[in-house]
Nucleic acid binder design. Structure first.
Lengths: 245, 245
DNA sequence: CGGGGGCATTGATCTGGATCAAGGCGCGGG
DNA sequence: CCCGCGCCTTGATCCAGATCAATGCCCCCG
C-alpha cells in the first residue's frame, strides 16, 4: 500500500540535528515551538525509530516514561476491556503527539497501523526543555485542548449517532485529514482496516461494511478499492453526519 | 435537596480577596497554583456568581471569552445534534474548571443542575496572569490531561459497554466523587436526573431506570430514594463495570 | 389537606445493529 | 501460475435496548 521509504531507517547520529530541522512533521507539531536556532537541543534528546505494522509503541499501564511524535505513518490508540473488547480512541498521523499523562502510567495503548516513523523523547528530558521554552508548554496545552474537543465530538458520535451517521462523520473527518496528500479532489486512502473503523465507531465489522456499501449505492461516495474512498456529495454527507435523515 | 447556602449570593466587592483565600474550591482547583501572597491578583479578576438550576453558564458556539471555576453545586456539560439529541460529556462539581478551548468559540454548553456558585475569569486577563505564574499553566495542562483520560474512559464505555456495565461504571465513579461529603460509607447523592444519566451514558431514561432497579434487586446497591444510592458490594460492582458478567 | 405537574418506574412491543454463517477477492509466496 | 490465507462483503436470524404506553409517587402550591 505504501512505497518503502527512501529514508534510512536508522539515522546517522551525527545528522541528528538535521533530522529535526528537516522533519516533515515539525510544522504540524510541538517541535515548532522551539526556534530553528535551538532545534539541536531538541534533536539531542530525540530518538528516531521505525515501527513495522502491528508493533506496539505504547502499552496501557506501562510507566509513562516517554513522549512520542509521529513523523510518518498512522497509529491507532485504544483501550481494552479485560475480555478483549476494544475501543479505538483515535488515529494519530503525521505531526501527532502521544503520551500526555498526569498519572505515572499510560492510559491507553498505541500500535502502528502501517510502517510508522516516530521520535521518542524521554519525559524527564523534555520537561527540562519545557522550562526553557514556555511556548512549548503552551503548545502542549493547545494540543490537549484540541484533543479534548475531538474527544467530546466522539462521545456525541458514540452515545447518540446511528451507524449511518457515524460512518458519514468518520468519512468526512478522514477526508479533511487525508485529502491534502491525495491528487483527485475528495479522494483519500484509509490506512486502517474495517475492524479498526468498527472499533473506532463502536460498531461491528459487518455493520461498517454494509453501511459503506449502502452509502455507495446511494451515490454519496465511491469506493474504488477497499482502502480508497472518494466523496461525491460532501455537503449531503456532512448533512447525514449531523442527522439530516 | 440542598440546604440553602448560608453565604451571601453576591459577595461584598471589598471582600473579594477573602473570597479566593477562603474559597472551598481552591484546594482542588487551578487557583492553588497561585501562592497565598498573590491570591489578591486572582480575586481581582474573578467575578463570583450564583446560577439557579437550569441556567446556562456556557453556550456551545458562543465566543469563548471566559473561564469558569465551580465553587459549589454541579454543572452538566453537553453537546446537541440539530434534531435535539443530547450527549452529556461530563458533570463538573466543586473545583472543576471549564472553558479550555483552542478555537475562539466554546465547543460545548454547560448548565447548572442545582444551585451553582462559580467564578468567571476573563480569558484575556487570566492569560496575562498565566505569564507570571507558569505553575498555573502547568496546572491547566494537568487538568486538560486528566480530562482527556476521563474522556477516553467514557469513549470505551459508550462504544463497547453494555447498559449494565455503563450503570455500574457510572455508580462507581459517582461514589468515588461524592462519598467524601456524605456520612454513611458508600452512600451518596445523585444531583442529576435519570434523563441526565441517560444522556451521559448513551441510553434512554427507561433503560437507566430498569437497570438501577435490577442492580438493586440483585443486591449490588440500595436506593433509599430516587436521588440517593448506597453501594453494598463495591468490589462486585467494580467487576461488573469492567465486564465480569 | 387535596389537586396537579413533573419525574420515575414498570410493562408490552418493536427494531437497528449484533451475531452467526457462508462465500468472494486480492495478494503474497511457492 | 496457482494456492491459501486474511480481509471484506453479503445473507439470515437474534436480541439488547429503544420506543410506545400507562401508572405511581413525590412535592409544591393553593
Amino acid at each position: 500500500m505504501y512505497a518503502p521509504s527512501t529514508r534510512p531507517v536508522v539515522l546517522d547520529p551525527h545528522g541528528a540535528a538535521n533530522a529535526c530541522t528537516h522533519c516533515d512533521a515539525r510544522a504540524h507539531s510541538v517541535c515548532n515551538a522551539v526556534p530553528d536556532s535551538d532545534v539541536a537541543r531538541l534533536a539531542a534528546i530525540a530518538v528516531v525509530t521505525t515501527a513495522q505494522p502491528g508493533t506496539t509503541l505504547i502499552q496501557e499501564g506501562d510507566p509513562a516514561s516517554h513522549f512520542v511524535n509521529i513523523s510518518a505513518g498512522t497509529v491507532r490508540m485504544y483501550k481494552l476491556l479485560p475480555d478483549g473488547r476494544r475501543q479505538i480512541t483515535g488515529f494519530a498521523g503525521v505531526g501527532h503527539f502521544l503520551g500526555l499523562a498526569v498519572s505515572s502510567t499510560y492510559a491507553f495503548s498505541a500500535e502502528a497501523i502501517d510502517t510508522v516513523r516516530y521520535c521518542r523523547f524521554s519525559r524527564a528530558r523534555l520537561h527540562t526543555l519545557l522550562d526553557d521554552y514556555p511556548a512549548m508548554e503552551k503548545r502542549l496545552l493547545e494540543i490537549a485542548s484540541t484533543e479534548l474537543v475531538a474527544a467530546q465530538d466522539q462521545m456525541l458520535l458514540l452515545g447518540r449517532k446511528t451507524a449511518r451517521e457515524r460512518l458519514a462523520s468518520f468519512l468526512m473527518l478522514q477526508s479533511r485529514q487525508g485529502v491534502m496528500c491525495q491528487s483527485p479532489r475528495g479522494r483519500f486512502v484509509l490506512p486502517m482496516s474495517r475492524g479498526d473503523i468498527a472499533d473506532y465507531l463502536g460498531l461491528t465489522i459487518e455493520t461498517v461494511s454494509r453501511t459503506i456499501t449502502k452509502l455507495r449505492s446511494e451515490g454519496y461516495i465511491d469506493v474504488p478499492s477497499a482502502t480508497e474512498i472518494a466523496i461525491k456529495a460532501p455537503a449531503a454527507l456532512e448533512g447525514l453526519a449531523l442527522g439530516n435523515a
